[in-house]
Simulated assay, not measured.
Amino acid sequence: MSDHVRDLALVREATDRLLTAAAKLDDAAVAAPSRLPGWTRGHVLAHLARNADALVNVFAGRPMYVSAEARDADIARDAPRPLATQLADVRDTAALFQKATAADTDWSRTVELRNGVTDSASRIPFRRLVEVELHHVDLGIGYELEDLPEEFIGREIDFLVDRFAGNASLPLILITASDGRQWRTGRADADPVSVIGTAADLLGWLAGRRQGAGLECDGTLLPVLPSL
């Protein structure tokens, strides 16, 4: 089982880091494009706030979102707000998430997220940590994949390779970080493809944040990963 207590502390730290960095922006910068196609920085901040609300729903046994359309509409509605409103919303909803997860609960129970995905309640704090850390990078305000905590990078690579494991559209992918850590994903019965690079570059590729230009592939084209 995941260490949810420690992960909740890491979520608080990551949220404070993001809020401190974003507070240096202004309203024009919030309205400018983020690194996510079609989204401004306001979209990213609005998504973080609405995701915290959604995870509170998960803990309460309610649907994570009313619908995919409602989720997208809420983000679009909140994206144009000024910086002060965005920051207050991210801060307040983060506090509600921490309050919801501080209550006595069965951390071993299974909860339902979007699209029928289920997970242990104990893993939800880490899922929130992923949202905060990667979307901080997506803001494009000086926080890069290389700035992410090393432990987080390794855990998120673990999560992503597990997600792609057994995918029929992929070869067997043997992944090696420059620090010696290794993973495998894709089809177990396919010819292997070796991918080597820094942990940050590997995470960027697996998470759809980088195209893989910094990675080495053993004489073949870098596999095209399915959308997350």
Score class of each variant (00 low, 15 high):
residue 1 M to S: 10
residue 2 S to A: 15
residue 2 S to I: 15
residue 2 S to M: 15
residue 4 H to V: 04
residue 5 V to L: 09
residue 7 D to F: 05
residue 8 L to E: 09
residue 9 A to L: 12
residue 11 V to W: 02
residue 11 V to L: 06
residue 15 T to W: 06
residue 18 L to D: 00
residue 21 A to G: 06
residue 26 D to L: 03
residue 27 D to I: 07
residue 28 A to V: 14
residue 34 S to P: 03
residue 38 G to Q: 05
residue 42 G to Q: 05
residue 44 V to I: 12
residue 44 V to S: 07
residue 50 R to Y: 15
residue 50 R to Q: 06
residue 51 N to Y: 12
residue 56 V to T: 10
residue 57 N to H: 09
residue 57 N to W: 07
residue 58 V to H: 03
residue 61 G to K: 03
residue 62 R to Q: 01
residue 65 Y to Q: 03
residue 66 V to T: 14
residue 68 A to G: 03
residue 68 A to M: 09
residue 70 A to S: 05
residue 71 R to H: 11
residue 71 R to M: 05
residue 71 R to F: 05
residue 73 A to H: 01
residue 77 R to N: 00
residue 79 A to L: 06
residue 81 R to T: 03
residue 86 Q to E: 02
residue 87 L to Y: 07
residue 89 D to H: 08
residue 91 R to H: 11
residue 91 R to W: 00
residue 91 R to Y: 00
residue 92 D to V: 00
residue 105 T to V: 05
residue 107 W to M: 01
residue 110 T to P: 00
residue 112 E to Y: 08
residue 113 L to S: 14
residue 114 R to H: 13
residue 114 R to G: 06
residue 114 R to S: 12
residue 115 N to R: 15
residue 117 V to Q: 13
residue 120 S to L: 02
residue 121 A to Y: 08
residue 122 S to W: 11
residue 123 R to L: 15
residue 125 P to I: 03
residue 126 F to D: 07
residue 127 R to E: 01
residue 129 L to M: 10
residue 129 L to D: 04
residue 129 L to G: 03
residue 131 E to L: 09
residue 131 E to P: 12
residue 132 V to F: 02
residue 134 L to E: 02
residue 135 H to V: 03
residue 135 H to K: 06
residue 137 V to L: 01
residue 138 D to I: 04
residue 141 I to V: 09
residue 143 Y to C: 04
residue 144 E to V: 10
residue 145 L to A: 03
residue 145 L to Y: 05
residue 151 E to Y: 11
residue 152 F to Y: 13
residue 152 F to C: 04
residue 153 I to S: 13
residue 156 E to R: 15
residue 158 D to S: 05
residue 158 D to W: 01
residue 162 D to Q: 13
residue 163 R to T: 09
residue 164 F to R: 14
residue 166 G to H: 08
residue 167 N to A: 04
residue 167 N to G: 05
residue 168 A to E: 13
residue 168 A to N: 13
residue 169 S to W: 04
residue 169 S to T: 08
residue 169 S to A: 08
residue 179 D to P: 00
residue 180 G to Q: 12
residue 181 R to E: 14
residue 181 R to K: 14
residue 182 Q to D: 00
residue 190 A to L: 00
residue 192 P to A: 13
residue 193 V to C: 04
residue 193 V to Y: 02
residue 194 S to A: 13
residue 203 L to A: 01
residue 207 A to E: 07
residue 208 G to R: 08
residue 208 G to P: 01
residue 208 G to E: 11
residue 209 R to I: 04
residue 210 R to T: 09
residue 210 R to N: 01
residue 212 G to C: 10
residue 213 A to R: 12
residue 215 L to Q: 12
residue 215 L to R: 15
residue 215 L to E: 08
residue 216 E to F: 13
residue 218 D to W: 10
residue 221 L to T: 14
residue 221 L to I: 08
residue 222 L to C: 08
residue 223 P to A: 07
residue 224 V to E: 04
residue 224 V to I: 09
residue 225 L to W: 08
residue 228 L to R: 14
